[in-house]
Design a binder for these strands. Structure first.
Lengths: 339, 339
DNA sequence: GCTGGCACTCGGACAGGGCGAGTGCCAAAA
DNA sequence: TTTTGGCACTCGCCCTGTCCGAGTGCCAGC
């Protein structure tokens, strides 16, 4: 168990290193922080912290920098979540109000988060399976070709073209549309499969049954397909803020960010409720082993329908970043609830 | 007017520099290319080319590199468009077939272009104003709140929430929906404004007229709003290929890529038909002054509904890039026509 | 107009030396 | 037992000087 003062030293090291981006030595520490002890004492503490693996030296006779483990301790025990300043809160409102549709909300959120945290922002679109159905629309494009449009309560819209095995009359179409909507509107997407499974049988014509089955298959497929979990990223220009060695780091990070699958997994690993901070090697993807990810769920009601977060260097301002992420998530939730 | 051989020297310089990324000297040139003359002769030619502004020396006693003007000449007169190899063509098919909806088509196209050219790919969504209307849907969310959904022949879907000045009955809604669709389905979006302008007057109730006007206003606004010209980018990891000085270049480029407005303007400036190549400072945006943009329109019919292209270092393989861009645009056009 | 030769220029790589920040250790003080 | 000041030591960084070679421009000769 580390003594109170040693924890204080660690906190000071993290704060200084985050601020200056340079390894911090014992003398500088005592000068910038009121630790009430001499550099020599701090040196002893540092030796202990290093032994325990919380800090490390880039090379002999350099200052210390926090390790992933050190940041972890800092985040868990030493740092609070810094609430946003009033101007920042106002900025969130100004930025997010006036969004015209879901794409716009997500787009604005990404830009806002990137700007607020000066890091890379990632925002997941509200998940289909956790949303409820607002409306299902069926359009006839050609005698045997339909377009299926799903609209969710969060404003998300998905559409698919369906090739039918047989021509489908306009009356049958209206019929199907009505039955489908009466069954699923207001229900959660996750429940849709059970709600519609007996629909085909209720049609008399054999061809119609086949068509209905096809339509439903497409509908269910749309719900299931994981790759339809869309997301938007922004603020990649902030990667240049990574530090002096950024040319080496940026490559794998950009590559990871391009892989939506990776990002979705990243956000998916986050806790269901509350904020999640993954530091350095805690991230499964190795391209992100020198980054930290701060993520949190957001939703229109009490329940999270999706997640958002930021990706930045392990050397980041955790309290500030966490504050911004949380505040934005809350406000986006409100916006979605209103629309 | 430059002699044939001097042009040949310029071509060789461009090719070597693109390949090696290093300033190319007279000796190396004669070794790698069968110019049939000695290095001394080449030096004289180089001196002329430099005087004319086609090539430059990074510093005294270094080889030459092409200037923007040099690349321009190369593209205009010395380089053809390299057709794709069979495996590459096959890759395009494999990659693009099986897209389920428009987002998917655009997403796949971006990844494909980025992979083929190893550069940053930009794909614009089919423009609203150049598409035709497939269907207009109106949904009632609350007594005085509607959702307007526009579906285009290219599969693009736009939605907006409309707050009505007064409650709007279900019958009026059905009425409006029917009249709206009968007027605009199959027509080009650009013509929609004239087609609907007298609609409000045809309703008897005063409140309904107001609501209809509101709905139409939202509809027209959706068409006009330039920022709704969406696009998708990908392959930003390829920015690391920029060269040894990439840390300096990458920043402004990433920033420019984040500004959708900038990119849209960039694509907008391209010629309506045929491929456009903008080299270095020919790009209006100064963050992109060390990049070249190759862009081309694509569309389902003979007419272009949107544009796509790639952004890369001025030192790029122009023939190959142009070949890839053109091939992808053609195939995407086919895909859109089919769906 | 082309070629070979030659002197010149500069940037890049390499080695050596001084500087300074930071450390670890120790003996003395609290 | 903990803290402190002192001190020798270690390295990385920066600056400088030197060398090397690629590449050039010029010129006389073919």
């Amino acid at each position: 168990m580390l003594s109170e003062r040693r924890l204080e030293v660690l906190r000071a090291i993290v704060q200084d290193y985050v601020g200056t981006e340079e390894p911090v030595g014992s003398k500088a520490l005592t000068e910038r922080h009121k630790l009430g002890v001499s550099p020599a004492t701090v040196r002893n503490d540092m030796a202990v912290l290093e032994e325990e693996g919380y800090i490390a030296q880039p090379h002999t006779s350099a200052g210390r920098i926090p390790t992933d483990k050190g940041y972890r301790l800092f985040v868990d025990r030493l740092a609070g979540v810094k609430p946003l300043s009033t101007p920042e809160r106002r900025a969130i409102h100004n930025f997010l109000d006036g969004a015209v549709d879901l794409d716009d909300v997500v787009g604005r959120t990404v830009r806002l988060l990137a700007q607020l945290t000066r890091q890379v922002a990632v925002v997941q679109y509200p998940s289909l399976t956790r949303s409820t159905v607002r409306h299902v629309e069926l359009l006839s494009l050609a005698p045997a070709r339909l377009m299926l449009v799903l609209i969710t309560d969060t404003g998300r819209v998905e559409q698919r073209v369906v090739d039918c095995p047989a021509p489908f009359g306009e009356t049958s179409l209206a019929d199907l549309r009505a039955r489908l909507n009466s069954r699923v509107v207001g229900r959660r997407f996750a429940d849709v499969p059970q709600l519609v499974q007996d629909l085909p049988e209720s049609f008399e014509e054999v061809e119609d049954r086949a068509t209905v089955s096809t339509v439903l298959a497409t509908l269910l497929e749309t719900l299931v397909e994981e790759h339809e979990e869309r997301l938007m990223i922004g603020g990649t220009a902030n990667l240049t803020r990574f530090g002096h060695d950024f040319p080496l780091m940026i490559r794998p990070v950009l590559e990871a960010l391009e892989e939506q699958v990776v990002l979705l997994k990243l956000l998916g690993e986050a806790k269901e409720s509350g904020m999640t901070v993954r530091i350095g090697h805690e991230n499964a993807h190795e391209g992100l082993s020198s980054t930290s990810v701060v993520s949190v769920g957001y939703g229109s009601g009490g329940e999270a329908v999706a997640k958002l977060g930021v990706v930045g260097p392990t050397r980041m301002d955790y309290p500030g970043t966490m504050g911004a992420v949380r505040a934005v998530a809350r406000y986006v939730g409100q916006i979605l609830a209103e629309s």
